[in-house]
Structures are given as C-alpha cells and as structure tokens.
Amino acid sequence: MQKLPDPSPANQPVEQAVHDARALVPNGTTANIVLDGQTYTLRITRAGKLILTK
C-alpha cells in the first residue's frame, strides 16, 4: 500500500497577512489594537519607526 503525504496544516506553507502601517493609523500618529481583550497602542514616530505599547 502506498503511503500518501500528510495533509496536516503543519506541512502547508503559511501565508502571512501584510498591512501598511499608515493605513492602520488613520490620524497619522496612533491606532488602538485589541488582542484577547487587551488594548495596545501602535504609534508611528516622527522618525518613521513603529512603537507598540500596552
């Protein structure tokens, strides 16, 4: 009997989502992101860096 490849998700390539940070921050500086009931703040600095704080 021929063994078939394992169709489990672990063997499948994972496609990652890509988001433009400026699209997530409509006012140009900060956006709130919620994960499991916790709110985080994403901030774009004047130097164009990202800071994520709880």
Rank of each mutant, 00 (worst) to 15 (best):
M1K: 13
Q2D: 11
Q2F: 06
Q2H: 07
K3I: 14
K3M: 13
L4Y: 05
D6F: 03
D6Q: 12
D6W: 03
D6I: 06
P7T: 03
P7Y: 00
P7D: 01
P9G: 02
P9S: 09
P9M: 07
A10Q: 07
N11V: 11
N11T: 13
N11S: 02
P13K: 04
P13S: 02
P13L: 00
V14N: 10
V14Q: 10
E15N: 12
E15C: 04
E15M: 08
A17L: 12
A17V: 14
A17H: 08
A17I: 14
A17W: 01
V18E: 02
V18Y: 08
V18I: 14
D20M: 09
A21N: 02
R22S: 10
A23K: 05
L24H: 06
L24R: 02
P26D: 01
N27C: 06
N27P: 09
G28P: 05
T29L: 00
T30M: 02
T30G: 03
T30H: 00
T30L: 02
N32H: 13
N32Y: 00
I33R: 04
V34R: 10
V34A: 09
L35N: 03
L35E: 09
D36L: 06
D36N: 13
D36E: 12
G37L: 01
T39L: 04
T39R: 10
Y40F: 15
Y40T: 14
Y40G: 12
T41I: 15
L42D: 03
I44T: 08
T45W: 01
R46A: 10
R46N: 11
A47M: 08
A47P: 09
A47Q: 13
K49D: 11
K49L: 03
L50M: 11
L50G: 07
L50T: 12
I51Y: 05
L52A: 13
L52H: 14
L52K: 12
L52D: 07
T53L: 08
T53Q: 10
T53M: 07
